[in-house]
Amino acid sequence: MRQLLAGKTAPILIVLLAIGLFWYAAAIWMNAPWQQTLNQRAGLENVSAIDFVAQTWAQDKPLLPAPHQVAGEIWNATVGTDIASKRSLAYHAGITLSATLLGFALGTLLGVGLAVMIVHNDASERSLMPWIIASQTIPILAIAPMVVVGLGAVGVTGLLPKALISMYLSFFPVVVGMVKGLRTPEAIQLDLMHTYSATPWQVFAKLRWPAAVPFLFASMKVGIAISLIGAVVGELSNNAGGGLGVRLLTGSYNGQTIQIWAALFIAAGLAALLVIAVGGAERLVNRAMGARP
């Protein structure tokens, strides 16, 4: 038992359990007033405490749905529904996922390209770097609706506007990380390449790039998480296209709290999967490159 508690798994499980219990308790407390109103309207009196608690966990549009209600909705809306149907959360998650991945790929390419340019050219570093750092401090996500509507007005709709938002969110961490990474080789290592009369391309391919790979993965983990946020927020401005953001928005208009929570958890699960996938790729590449285990 003591060994179990000393590890990480047991504490995490216990904390999760505590959160679950707290959630059920909060559901009773938050849903109780409305349940009382409902019971009065229905003329129900003398509802036993146990029944009342069960009622608060089974409302149609509860203020706070109980965990099992959210889990049930997720099950129904993914496994229980045809994947091509517009009611399927898997269908909407697929839309969000494709925008996320496209934007992430574009953003990473753009970020790496800019970083290579910045590291190899003094003038572009001096011109670009201060703006790239400054732009980290402004809430660029606010541009999302404008990108979607502006591009929509000139006929560009669907995946691309959302992917563009994801792209401009994810390229910042990649640029900053890669500039740092491409600069990690020490003077002594660059001198060594100089004594071999290596070409700039050889210095890049054999020294700078491998040295920067760990930084690339660290930035990509940040990048993919915010790519997903960009895609979801992009969807808020275009109800027609579908996606998890649209499910959040329609759920909010119709007061379908269970639907909101289900979409939220699917989005969280998606984010987790994506980060884990990048982390897995990182571990594979690191092992191939002989990193200390």
Partner: peptide, 30 residues
């Protein structure tokens, strides 16, 4: 440019992502 000399620095400056053999092979590749 004629590769007339080999240089050994104060620190080994081996590339951590290459094995010893691959590190020795670095100038050969270049």
């Amino acid at each position: 440019l004629n590769r007339a000399y080999g240089y050994v620095f104060q620190a080994p400056a081996l590339y951590p992502w290459r094995t010893i053999a691959q590190n020795v092979a670095l100038p050969l590749e270049i």
